[in-house]
């Protein structure tokens, strides 16, 4: 008995950590389990019986897959926009001393330190005042705006940790500035850029608050669809999509890491 107590005492931190992990993963497991449910009413909160109907017919709900494809389009375009603009800003901040550096840093930091609802309401107010109709373009503008800062932070950290002598070496070997940039600088910065892009994609794809304030009646993204459904009745297919996204994300991360390890082993 006392041995058990000693074991618990010496592993207290790990036990607490495992409990925390369970707290984080539990909802995903519930989403997974209830994707096999056959609910009796309109809502999918109570277990009734096992069924694979939703998995065999994921697009069986009106408008859901349409909203999914809209979300994917927005996320891809927002990721491209934010990554290009953010990488440029990150290079300027990491490589140059210039007037207005502090103000620039503050400008990058503030969107991350602002509750989403404040940005959402103020941007929506601007579009209203300018009489710009809400729709695809306004969603895209908003998404690029809030993803930008995250890209800058990720890329800047990477560029700062790069050895400047590698670029000097390239120039010593008579590489033109363009060659140096394309063959040395960009490949070195690539992991940071990839991290920023991945983060942008996830943030944009999952965004609800800013999208709700800046989208039109016909542009319903996937999170907006789920929100609407949570009031009218949720199809099981929502859980199928949620689970599929989770599995795809884990597979991507694990695959990426495996590739990275292999490349390291080869090199």
């Amino acid at each position: 008995m006392s041995r058990i107590f000693t074991w618990i005492r010496s592993h207290l931190v790990v036990l607490a950590g495992v409990l925390a992990l369970a707290y984080l993963v539990l909802p995903n497991l519930v989403v997974l389990a209830f994707s096999f449910n056959k609910p009796q009413g309109k809502f999918n909160y109570e277990w009734s019986e096992f069924s694979t109907d939703a998995w065999t017919n994921p697009c069986g709900v009106a408008d859901m897959c349409q909203s999914l494809s809209l979300s994917l389009q927005v996320a891809v375009l927002a990721t491209i926009g934010a990554t290009v603009l953010g990488t440029m800003v990150a290079f300027a901040l990491a490589r140059y001393r210039f007037r207005g550096r502090g103000a620039t840093s503050a400008m990058i930091f503030l969107p991350m330190a602002m509750p989403e609802v404040v940005m959402a309401a103020s941007l929506g107010t601007l579009f209203l005042n300018m009489r710009i109709p809400f729709g695809f373009v306004t969603i895209l503008i908003a998404h690029i705006m809030f993803c930008l800062s995250f890209v800058v932070t990720a890329v800047k950290a990477r560029v700062m940790s790069m050895d400047p002598r590698l670029e000097q070496a390239a120039q010593d070997l008579y590489a033109t500035p363009v060659q140096t940039f394309l063959r040395v600088t960009l490949p070195l910065a690539a992991p940071g850029i990839a991290a920023g892009a991945l983060l942008s994609f996830a943030l944009s794809f999952d965004d609800f608050i800013i999208t709700q304030f800046n989208s039109g009646p016909t542009t319903v993204t996937f999170p907006m669809f789920v929100w609407g459904a949570s009031q009218r009745g949720i199809p099981v297919q929502v859980n199928v999509i949620g689970t599929a996204m989770f599995i795809a994300a884990v597979a991507l991360t694990v695959g990426g890491q495996w590739l990275g390890n292999r490349r390291k082993a080869v090199a």
Binding site: L26, D206, V226, G242, A249, V250, T253
Partner: peptide, 27 residues
């Protein structure tokens, strides 16, 4: 690495769906 992936992975499931799952858990 496994735990870090488990910490980050929920980010990729729509957080509205995950929040709704709490309705089931706390029913």
């Amino acid at each position: 690495n496994v735990i870090l992936i488990l910490v980050i992975a929920p980010f990729f499931t729509s957080f509205l769906i995950r929040t709704l799952a709490w309705k089931t858990i706390l029913s």
